[in-house]
């Protein structure tokens, strides 16, 4: 019976649950879903991670290639993040060029990486104006169940933490480079960002870590990204207006969560080694 009710009146079904301060999946309003992180399982990549937040699953793989720095930034390497909403993850997405949603997500992830300054691009330069590393970070969603920004950000940061690059020696007089595959060193990650998404339901209730159903029914979302003790992204793309208390409340929750997530990343990496 509940199934039919849910498909006929999804909004009412949710409202009935939320009246009793509980969500249909058994969580309280401000509860987060369990998070699973696995790193280094894809050996063809120079760094990889798989992140699950509830059902939402994102795989991140970083492949390094050698290129030439841009003329206007001769001492900088590249970090190229791209999010792909592959048709595997939901019936919403069809094969072909990236949808608008995927493009927006790509930009958001690129903004978060840029804002947090977690990677010093100058460290990716091998020899100024000659050669530099280009890290292609591909994030592929394989199960779309809401809070995708959180999952992508988490996958990317845990992946960056395990990336290792081979040693390169460059001889400027001969313009020759030699790569030593045996000797690999990890890259420096200066800060860890943690993203948390909230959904605003019926203009007043705030649901933490929404599922895809909740995202579809809600009247607005809010994503806050913390970076160490600071904020590096507060993203609210329209939707229901928020009062300041709600905003501060969300920021506080986000700060608390970021500590536990950071610990989780650490344990995931330790287990891998």
């Amino acid at each position: 019976m509940a199934e039919q009710y849910k498909s006929l009146h999804p909004a009412k079904y949710y409202r009935d649950h939320l009246k009793h301060d509980i969500r249909p999946d058994g969580r309280e309003l401000s509860d987060f879903r369990p998070v699973v992180i696995n790193v280094g399982s894809i050996k063809t990549a120079d760094g990889s991670s798989i992140v699950k937040i509830g059902n939402t699953t994102v795989v991140c793989g970083i492949k390094a290639e050698i290129s030439r720095p841009k003329a206007d930034a001769a001492t900088k390497g590249f970090l190229v993040p791209n999010v792909e909403l592959s048709p595997v993850c939901s019936s919403k997405f069809k094969p072909g060029p990236p949808s608008d949603q995927a493009q927006v997500l790509t930009q958001i992830i690129a903004d978060i990486v840029g804002n947090s300054q977690c990677i010093n691009l100058e460290e990716l330069c091998i020899f100024p104006d000659k050669i530099a590393w280009c890290l292609y970070a591909d994030l592929i969603c394989i199960d779309y169940d809401g809070s995708l920004i959180d999952a992508c950000a988490l996958a990317l940061i845990s992946c960056l933490k395990v990336v290792s690059l081979p040693e390169v020696s460059y001889d400027p007089s001969l313009d020759k480079q030699q790569v030593n595959l045996e000797k690999r060193t990890p890259i420096n990650v200066n800060s860890v960002f943690v993203s948390t998404t909230f959904a605003i339901f019926d203009d007043k209730l705030i649901l933490a870590d929404p599922t895809v159903e909740e995202e579809n029914l809600c009247t607005g979302t809010l994503t806050i990204v913390t970076c160490n003790d600071e904020l590096c992204y507060v993203h609210k793309p329209g939707g229901s207006p928020l009062v300041d208390e709600q905003m501060s409340d969300c920021i506080e929750k986000c700060m608390n969560r970021s500590n536990s997530i950071k610990k989780l990343i650490k344990t995931a990496i330790l287990e891998n080694i």
């Binding site: 050698i66 030439r68 590249f78 081979p166």
Partner: peptide, 18 residues
């Protein structure tokens, strides 16, 4: 135009390995 592009040219580092 629908993705973030890296540098115009980049090659796998394995090419320069012994």
């Amino acid at each position: 135009h629908k993705r973030i592009n890296g540098p115009e040219e980049s090659v796998p580092y394995e090419l320069f390995a012994r």
